[in-house]
Write a protein that binds this DNA or RNA. Structure first.
Lengths: 378, 378
DNA sequence: AGCTATAATGAATCACTAG
DNA sequence: ACTAGTGATTCATTATAGC
């Protein structure tokens, strides 16, 4: 079991003395500004805060796809800040209130991208929060980089933090290990972005530009709360946190300002059905087959630039280059592309076409890939 | 081709004027404190800085594995800071010098973990660096979390930043796509940790507690530098940056304080073998061909005035006019401009948008351009 | 109904040169 | 500094249309 699946009794009592036992009203949405709304809540009253604040994206002009279609960017007023200083002040303010209303045994989750997460992370450390992990949400299906100017931005970062270094907190270690096929849950989670039936739409257009997938909240809550715990989301949006809390038998409080989001959130949570224990157990992440790019073999030294490959009949001999491309008779390309080009075929599986010359004869490139997998698999 | 695979000539000249052309001494290790050593270097003299600063780990007591064996943690004096404020001051200082000695077209890479990366990221944004990506090094074989109190910390974070929002920088887009089996390289990289033969040891114990794998530096340098570029590493350690730079035909400068690391680094780099030029070559976009104006095809008779072009779906039919402009549905313009206008798109590549009807179906205009080039090449 | 082809879209800091 | 012209550039998934 985790560090704390039962609360430290002495601390729990101390809280009970400081804050008169008034039943906290839960499973409700508070309309209005998140900082003002949090101020109205008592000290140490929630077990988890999940926050998805504005990212302060600072986007430039319009962006088009290669096919000419327009990319629907996040241009909402709530994501606009005048400066880093203004964003930092906003961050400090909501974090301070979050810290106050969070129980000593509670934990904070914040999600962000490189635009804002470094500022948020530094700010919460400054306030005394103790980072337990940073978690990488590796998007299974991110939007590509259309202009070929950077790496595809394929992840977002979550920070998980306790109130202080010595604080006790809930971590359902066993549940996470079960969810991950009996391997310890890692700090990188592969999950699809929110789309399909799950994505809330009105009149054919998305209700919220940045709706988070329920699978993400599901894992967060399953890992770090107990049934009956209170989860607060100060940037509630369309209520993913509320819907998942209801499903998992946790209590929730949402704070949201925009009426259009509120309406969609309430309707959605109303429709959400609590799961029974057996259904929860079924939801497992499928283990993805590890994919290895040819370039990885070059990078990791299993094959050096300058090495030669040939086909099974030794008709062609190709030289490996630094980026994992091949060169043969003045032609260059990927292992698949060059193989196809040389044979005049529309396509070619380079892993089986290209051979490595070894002591015991030619072996397909694929055996090197198998070696890599054997060496790196846990 | 990336944003910039050759330097902006005007900017390069400006630098040459500001900084007298004194040959920078490269492929060498500077002993001593990184900030003092950087101060001795001229402005705008390096193309890339790769920094692996102390992580400020704040580890508590000793850590033991379940079998009772002791975990060799990072407890070196260089990783001790009295407070976040002290660490922040240190970060500001080395980043300021890094910014000064980095060329306007250069980029900065920093690697860290959740202990320090948020502070480093916020600090470099404050200094004016423009984050291009944050990259997740997803460790293929991380150390498990022995106590079962948190998620297995299975990644580290790298930040890639240019000097400013508008700065030009090198990104070898095509090489990265090739390296990743013809898919855009994403912001999450799966690479094994440094071990086996690669891990430097002396008397059976590791020389450096946090030696980075060469595969990581390999990808960083292949992505963001050109052959002959100067790469500086202010926290050189055992010289992974130097060894990979030598292999890839880049120049390097390392700064290191600890004599034990220096010794290992120099020995290692001495033994590293440079790849020959053909192996270091990377895939480029087919753009080295001289520019051909559309009008030239009309002038030379490859396409006659009055000929018709259409798009792939035959939605539009355009007539070629004598001056190389097109006419369609009363609209006229260049091959690019008219294509954009008809689609209602902000821009359009006319060479691939417009098709020529031939015996074996539609072929993009670009094939005519290729024919012209073949016919006119010496 | 079932299968295949086409279209749409997602937290994105997304071009460069010449004049 | 700004404008205009050329031309380089996308992946996984879902929804819809066509057969």
């Amino acid at each position: 079991m985790g560090v704390l699946e039962r609360v430290d009794r002495r601390k729990a009592k101390a809280v009970a003395i400081a804050v008169p036992e008034v039943a906290l009203e839960t499973d409700r949405l508070i309309r209005g500004d998140c900082i003002a709304a949090m101020r109205a809540l008592p000290d140490a009253c929630v077990d988890m805060i999940f926050a998805d604040p504005p990212y302060n994206l600072q986007l430039g002009g319009d962006l088009s796809r290669p096919d000419g279609s327009h990319v629907d960017a996040v241009t909402d007023a709530w994501d606009k800040f005048d400066s880093f200083a203004a964003y930092d002040a906003f961050t400090r303010d909501w974090l301070r209130e979050a810290r106050r209303i969070l129980k000593p045994t509670g934990t904070l989750w914040v999600i962000g991208s490189y635009h804002n997460i470094f500022r948020v992370g530094a700010s919460l450390q400054d306030q005394g929060f103790w980072i337990l992990n940073d978690i990488i949400w590796r998007k299974a299906n991110p939007m590509p980089n259309f202009k070929g100017t950077r790496f595809t931005n394929a992840h977002e970062t979550l920070i998980w933090a306790s109130q202080s270094e010595k604080a006790k907190y809930t971590f359902n270690y066993r549940a996470m290990k079960t969810l991950n096929d009996e391997l310890q849950m890692r700090s990188d989670w592969v999950l699809p972005i929110c789309g399909g039936q799950e994505r809330l739409k009105k009149g054919g257009t998305k209700v919220h530009p940045t709706q988070k997938p329920e699978s993400l909240l599901y894992r967060v809550m399953l890992a770090c709360t107990k049934p009956g715990d209170v989860v607060l989301d100060p940037f509630f949006g369309t209520g993913t946190t509320g819907a998942v809390a209801k499903r998992l038998g946790r209590k929730w409080i949402g704070i949201e300002r925009e009426e259009s989001y509120i309406e969609a959130a309430l309707e959605r949570i109303e429709a959400a059905l609590p799961l029974d224990e057996s259904a929860v157990a079924i939801m497992q992440t499928p283990r993805q087959a590890p994919k290895v790019a040819f370039g990885t073999l070059v990078e990791t030294g299993l094959l050096s630039p300058g090495a030669t490959l040939c086909d099974t009949k030794r008709r062609w001999k190709a030289v490996v280059r630094a980026d994992g491309s091949l060169e043969c008779e003045g032609e260059t390309g990927s292992i698949h592309g060059l193989g196809a080009k040389l044979q005049g075929a529309p396509s070619c599986n380079g892993w089986t076409f290209w051979q490595v010359d070894s002591a015991d004869g030619l072996k397909p490139l694929d055996t090197l890939r198998q070696n890599y997998l054997l060496a790196t698999e846990p």
